[in-house]
């Protein structure tokens, strides 16, 4: 719901408003245009300095990277690897997220159980996740199961605390009000506890979704034969700078796109919270 809609219509002098509006529009375009200009300048500098100031062997040059990228896009390499990364991240996110919601809901709903179990989860949380990779390799081998497992692990911890505290700290007076209105335990669970936790979960997507991708890419770099992380590792292993940069740029673009998507989704989901959680 836009704020403009609720403002009562007031009489305004169009002639006076028009220039101000044009100015506002100009200002809105100034930022993105400025950023684009910076990118173009950097790319041009890179192109010109490669082979002159720095050794092209290490840094390649934008035109060559673009060539490589176009070649991959045409022969299917890009899609073959990107789809694998997405699939692993999707499955890992779903598993880790579902577990986090479930465990967070159960532990958050019962103060005693929560107090009993939560320290264990926190102690595992404080362990560097990457230290678990060798163990996971032992259990899952290399390849998709490993990527999914690491991704699920990372997502679980990012979403567990949001769910746990979201359920636990739900406003007592809201629950009481529902009870007097005749709400059953079930009504309270789905109409108060769950939405109150989802606020935090949705706010946490900003972090957990990109981290799911990061986890998969790291797993692919460490051990795999498919995926964007694998593409980075493979090319750098062959001292192919153009290929390495092409793979990295792909990750960069995916990262930015995912971040924007999540921002839009969170903003829609938290529409009711006007003063709300950061979504930008």
């Amino acid at each position: 719901m836009s704020v403009e809609k609720v403002v009562a219509p007031v009489e305004v002098d169009e002639a006076q408003v028009a220039p101000a509006r044009a100015k506002k529009r100009r200002r809105r375009w100034a930022m993105p245009l400025g950023r684009l200009a910076i990118v173009v300048v950097l790319l041009v500098l890179w192109e010109l300095s490669a082979g002159v100031v720095v050794d092209e062997f290490f840094v390649s040059r934008p035109s060559k990277i673009w060539e490589k990228w176009a070649e991959w896009a045409a022969d299917g390499t890009l899609w073959y690897n990107a789809s694998s990364t997405f699939a692993s991240a999707g499955v890992g996110f779903a598993i880790g997220g579902a577990l986090a919601l479930l465990v967070g809901y159960v532990l958050g709903g019962s103060r005693r159980l929560g107090d009993l179990i939560e320290p264990f989860i926190t102690s595992i949380y404080s362990l560097p996740k990457l230290a678990l990779v060798p163990l996971f390799v032992m259990w899952f081998g290399i390849g998709r199961p490993l990527q999914v497992a690491i991704c699920a692990l990372v997502v679980f911890f990012l979403m567990f605390y949001n769910t746990f505290y979201g359920i636990r700290d739900v406003d007592r007076s809201l629950i009481d009000a529902m009870r007097v209105m005749g709400g059953s335990r079930w009504d309270i669970a789905v109409r108060v506890r769950l939405p109150s936790a989802l606020v935090w979960v949705v706010a946490g997507l900003k972090l957990s979704v990109p981290q799911a991708l990061v986890a998969v890419v790291v797993a692919e770099i460490l051990a795999s034969n498919r995926g964007l992380g694998h593409l980075v590792a493979l090319n750098s292993g062959q001292f192919n700078a153009s290929g390495t940069f092409a793979a990295l740029f792909t990750l960069l673009i995916i990262g930015i796109t995912v971040d924007r998507l999540v921002a839009v989704i969170t903003r829609r989901a938290l529409l009711w919270k006007q003063d709300g959680v950061e979504t930008q």
């Binding site: 406003d171 007076s173 809201l174 009481d176 009000a177 009870r179 007097v180 209105m181 005749g182 109409r191 108060v192 939405p195 109150s196 606020v199 009711w272 919270k273």
Partner: peptide, 16 residues
């Protein structure tokens, strides 16, 4: 007591 209507002193509207 679900037979009464209770207008609480604090705000207990569901914000979502």
């Amino acid at each position: 007591n679900t037979a009464v209507g209770y207008m609480t002193q604090g705000d207990t509207l569901l914000p979502w």
